[in-house]
Design a protein around this nucleic acid. Structure first.
Length: 494
RNA sequence: CGGGGUGUAGCGCAGCCCGGUUAGCGCGCUACGUUCGGGACGUAGAGGUCGUGAGUUCGAAUCUCACCACCCCGACCA
C-alpha cells in the first residue's frame, strides 16, 4: 500500500483531501485558492450539469450568457447586495501590460487605467437585471426564465477543493415575473427541482426549507435551501433558491405595463448550485477505500478487468468480453470500459477503480470462461459474487439500480440517526458538538440565533418545509427560554 | 488583516544551527528481465536556476538584508 488514504476516523478533513487527490478529481493550481478540475472530476460535473440542464429545460427555462465583468457602479444600486459581496470581489483596474524599460519585466501600464473599475462577477443579478431593463416593457414580455452556466469569483479567505474555491463553476437562474405569487412559486419550484436532483440523482437526502433572515442571500426577501449532512455530521448547503421581490427591479428600474395599463415593478427570483455539489457527493458517500459514486452520476458505470498470463489467454478473454458482455451492457446505456491495458497488473487496476468509485467491476479470467461466469464486485459494499455470463447485462443493470438505492438509504439512515430533537441547551450542545443536526425550538429572533452561533458555532440551517410550524406553539426557545416561533434545524456547517 | 510556518528533482522530504570540492533519500519516471485472481520484484538509468534579488566571504543550499509565493490557525463565506 504505497498510497494510503487517511481514515475518516483519524482525520476527516485529511480524508476528504486524500479522496480528491487519489481519485484524481482536482488539484490546486498556482493561483491562490483556485483549482484545476481534472478530467475525472470534470466528467462528474458534466453529468451533474447535463441532468440539471435537462430538468431546467423541462421546467421551461432557457440558457443564455452574460458578461464576466460588471461595472463597479452596478453594485451601488442594491444596498444589501453590495454589502454581502463587497469584501470578496476581484477588481479589474487596468487593461494593458507593458515591458518596463529598466527591469525588462512585464508590468501594469499605468496609462491604461480604466475609467470605471470592473468587478469580476461574484454572482450576476446586477448585470442581468441591467439587461432585463431593456428586455421588459409589457406583461407580454414576462415571464423571463433564463439560466446561465458560468464561472464566478469570490475572493474567499480560506479555500477547500470543491467546497470553497476563489473561482467556481455554477449555474444561476434569473427569472422575471409579472406577479409576486408567480415569482414565489418559481422560487419554490426550483428548490424542489434541486431537492429531486439531490435525492434521486446524487442519492443525497436533504432537508429543504426557509433560511432565517440572518442567513438569507444578500438582496433576497426569502431564501430557500437544501441542506445535506456529511459523514462528520456537519451540514452542507447544497443549493439555494431566492425570492428577490422587487429589490432588483427597483434598483435597475425594470418596470412593465400590466394588463390594466398600469406601470409596475417586475418580480424576481434567482437560484443556483455549484461545483460544491461534487464536494457533497464525496463527503456523503465515500469510504476509507476511496470515492463512492451514485451510478446515475458516475462517469463510468462498469469496468472489466481481464486476468491472464499469456497473450493467447488475453485474446480469448477479449473475445468473450466482446461477444458476451460489452454490447449487452452498451445496449442498456451502461457506460463500460474494458481495461486490457497490459502495462498494469490486475491488483493495481482493482485499487485504481475502487479509489475512483466505479460502481461495478467485472473480473474475468480463464477460470471464469471455463465456468461460464464472471466475478462481479460492487463498490458500495465491496461484496464479490460470481454470476453467469448469460444475462450479465440484466444482472449489472439491476445491480446499478440497487447501488443507487442502497447508497441513498445508507446516507438517509446516517442522517436520521444523527438528527435529534433537543429539549434543552445542554442537549443541544451535545448534539451539535458530536456532529449532528439538532431539531430545536427557536424564538424567531436574530439575537438568539447569533448568540447560539457565538457559543456553539452552530447555525440555523433551515426552517424545514415538512415540519408543521404549529408544533412550535406552546414550546420554549432552547436557548432564550422565550416563546418559540419555529422548530428548526441547527448544525455546524461547511 | 492578526498569529505561526514553509520554499531544495514531477511529488514528499533530509542537509542549513556549526559555510568547503560530486547536494542526498523515499515515491514516481525510463529500459530490460522475471511476474500477473487485491497496489510485484531485481538490475541499470534519466532527472536540480537549492523561491527571487542584493550583500558578507577565497568559497553560500548553509550567514545577513530585502522581496515574492504558498500553507496552517483566527475573523469572513456557496
Amino acid at each position: 500500500m504505497a498510497k494510503a488514504i487517511t481514515k475518516r476516523s483519524e482525520n476527516y478533513s485529511q480524508w476528504y483531501n486524500d479522496i480528491v487527490k487519489f481519485a484524481d478529481l482536482a488539484e490546486y493550481s498556482q493561483v491562490r485558492g483556485c483549482m484545476v478540475i481534472k478530467p475525472y472530476g470534470y466528467a462528474i460535473w458534466e453529468k451533474i450539469k447535463d441532468q440539471l440542464d435537462k430538468m431546467f429545460k423541462e421546467t421551461g427555462h432557457v440558457n443564455a450568457y452574460f458578461p464576466l465583468f460588471i461595472p463597479k457602479s452596478f453594485f451601488n444600486r442594491e444596498a444589501q447586495h453590495v454589502e454581502g459581496f463587497a469584501k470578496e470581489c476581484a477588481v479589474v483596474t487596468h487593461y494593458r501590460l507593458k515591458v518596463d524599460d529598466e527591469s525588462k519585466k512585464i508590468v501594469v501600464d499605468d496609462d491604461a487605467k480604466l475609467e470605471e473599475e470592473l468587478i469580476v462577477r461574484p454572482t450576476s443579478e446586477t448585470i442581468i437585471w441591467d439587461s432585463y431593463k431593456n428586455w421588459i416593457q409589457s406583461y407580454r414580455d414576462l415571464p423571463i426564465l433564463v439560466n446561465q452556466w458560468a464561472n464566478v469569483v469570490r475572493w474567499e479567505m480560506r479555500t477547500r477543493l470543491f467546497l470553497r474555491t476563489a473561482e467556481f463553476l455554477w449555474q444561476e437562474g434569473h427569472t422575471a415575473h409579472a406577479t409576486k405569487e408567480e415569482a414565489m412559486e418559481e422560487a419554490m419550484k426550483m428548490i424542489n427541482v434541486y431537492r429531486t436532483f439531490a435525492e434521486e440523482w446524487m442519492a443525497l437526502p436533504v432537508y429543504s426549507g426557509h433560511k432565517t433572515e440572518n442567513e438569507r442571500f444578500a438582496g433576497a426577501i426569502e431564501t430557500y435551501s437544501i441542506e445535506a449532512m456529511m459523514q462528520d455530521g456537519k451540514a452542507l448547503q447544497a443549493g439555494t433558491s431566492h425570492f428577490l421581490g422587487q429589490n432588483f427591479s427597483k434598483a435597475f428600474d425594470v418596470k412593465f405595463l400590466n394588463k390594466e395599463g398600469k406601470l409596475e415593478y417586475v418580480w424576481a427570483t434567482s437560484w443556483g448550485v455549484s461545483t460544491r455539489l461534487i464536494g457533497a457527493l464525496i463527503m456523503a458517500h465515500s469510504d476509507d477505500n476511496g470515492l463512492v459514486l451514485p451510478p446515475k452520476l458516475a462517469p463510468l458505470h462498469v469496468v472489466i478487468v481481464p486476468v491472464y498470463r499469456k497473450p493467447e489467454q488475453l485474446a480469448e478473454i477479449t473475445k468473450t468480453v466482446n461477444e458476451k458482455i460489452l454490447s449487452g451492457l452498451r445496449a442498456k446505456g451502461i457506460t463500460v470500459k474494458y481495461d486490457d491495458d497490459d502495462k498494469y497488473k490486475p491488483g493495481y487496476k482493482f485499487n485504481e477503480y475502487e479509489v475512483k468509485g466505479v460502481p461495478v467491476r467485472l473480473t474475468i479470467g480463464m477460470r471464469d470462461i471455463e465456468n461460464g461466469q464472471v466475478e462481479v464486485v460492487r463498490r458500495d459494499t465491496l461484496e464479490k459474487k460470481f454470476y453467469p455470463l448469460d444475462n450479465i447485462a440484466d444482472t449489472v443493470e439491476a445491480l446499478l439500480n440497487d447501488i443507487q438505492k442502497g447508497i441513498f438509504k445508507k446516507a438517509k439512515d446516517f442522517r436520521d440517526s444523527h438528527t435529534h430533537e433537543v429539549s434543552n441547551f445542554d442537549e443541544f450542545k451535545e448534539v451539535v458538538n458530536n456532529g449532528g443536526f439538532a431539531l430545536a425550538y427557536w424564538d424567531g429572533t436574530t439575537e438568539t440565533e447569533l448568540k447560539i452561533k457565538e457559543e456553539t458555532k452552530a447555525t440555523i440551517r433551515v426552517i424545514p418545509f415538512d415540519i408543521d410550524q404549529n408544533e412550535a406553539k406552546g414550546n420554549k426557545d432552547v436557548y432564550s427560554g422565550k416563546d418559540a416561533k419555529y422548530k428548526v434545524i441547527f448544525a455546524k456547517a461547511y
